[in-house]
Design a protein around this nucleic acid. Structure first.
Lengths: 194, 194
DNA sequence: TTAAGATGAGTGAATACTCATTCATTTAAA
DNA sequence: TTTAAATGAATGAGTATTCACTCATCTTAA
């Protein structure tokens, strides 16, 4: 009956929130600044989210979902070996760092914040996918049974993200994230797991 | 002439600040709450620090100094092989996680915050120590020249801290940090670097 | 017309930080 | 040994500002 919701406004809010949380931390990213950056009224986001916390939690959830959905796609593809899966996953993370570094940084910031928890359901999904990868690897004799789910997560997700952020922060004076670095990360993961 | 400064008060402020930053993030840790937890007047900390930011930065600096000083001790000890150095360093981090998890968590939180930067001087120290370890390893033929400073940092500092925080957060339902886990972490680092 | 999208001034609470004041301790004169 | 002046450690009420959030109001497309 009346005009329809302008979805670009919500998208702007989500992008602004992400950017400001990365830049200033959760506590430092204020609602009014988020709204200002999104070119939207101060109170507008409360039509969609009950609170600032809910908005940011939803952002984290969506981003992880995007990542885990992709993981699932790779692992479920029976044509791919475990080595292939690792390569695909690492490539995905590196591409994200290059093309939408905001997202990698946001993940990085919130996953290390003791205020925010990965949703238990998502945690379980991640665990199950790591187990699936492990079992696949044992079947194809790529993985020794000594490797557990935690190690798989650590070296295919955690470690690449850690590396990417060293580069994004220019920690050791290097910031390049190219094919050379992708190959290196894949090698390291493979060396450990396979 | 007057009473002397009660150093336990300052220490209490530092401990409270650390705890609250871990629990609520930098923005969420308010001065009044820090003071309350330290059983000290609201404005007291301003006799020693110009601002909240200065206090927290000093906390990060001290903690890193403690760590880097130890790294230096290990690497400078000519009796130790690179494998020994890795073992010592990993053990140090794991002990810290067991006995003063607040410190590991604080490091974890602030090193992943885009507001806080490791002091350039400390960054350089870390880089130089990694280089020293690399050169030592090449001399003793423990390390291939393909391994660079960044990889050393990643697998002897970053990765163990990452693992410890998975456990401290109980991410995969496991929280034990014992000898078994230490051995595993040392193994993984060695496997990559040596 | 009208229903719903969108606004932004307004709310009380909380924020980081200041400073006039109080209090405990030390020193030294009586 | 006693006492009071001198000192600076420590306090906490007070500052302006900003915070997350609400809601009466306006705008616009159906």
């Amino acid at each position: 009956m009346a005009r329809s919701i302008d979805k670009t406004k919500i998208e702007n809010i989500r992008n602004s929130a992400m950017e400001l949380v990365v830049e200033k931390g959760y506590g430092g990213a204020s609602i009014s600044e988020i709204a200002k950056k999104a070119a939207v009224a101060d109170g507008y986001l409360y039509r969609f989210y009950k609170s600032k916390s809910e908005l940011v939690n939803d952002l984290l959830y969506s981003l992880l979902k995007e990542l885990v959905d992709n993981m699932e796609l790779f692992i479920s593809d029976t044509k791919l070996s475990v080595k292939d899966v690792i390569e695909k996953l690492v490539r995905l993370l590196f591409e994200m760092a290059n093309q939408q570094s905001r997202k990698i940084k946001f993940l990085f910031v919130l996953m290390h914040d003791y205020n925010f928890e990965v949703h238990p359901e998502q945690r379980k999904r991640i665990f199950d996918l790591c187990r699936k990868a492990k079992n696949k690897g044992i079947k194809t004799k790529e993985i020794s049974s000594a490797v557990d789910e935690e190690a798989i997560y650590l070296f295919t997700v955690s470690m690449p993200i850690q590396f990417l952020n060293l580069r994004l922060k220019n920690f050791f004076g290097k910031s390049s994230i190219g094919e050379k670095e992708i190959k290196m990360a894949i090698n390291l993961s493979s060396k450990i797991l396979l």
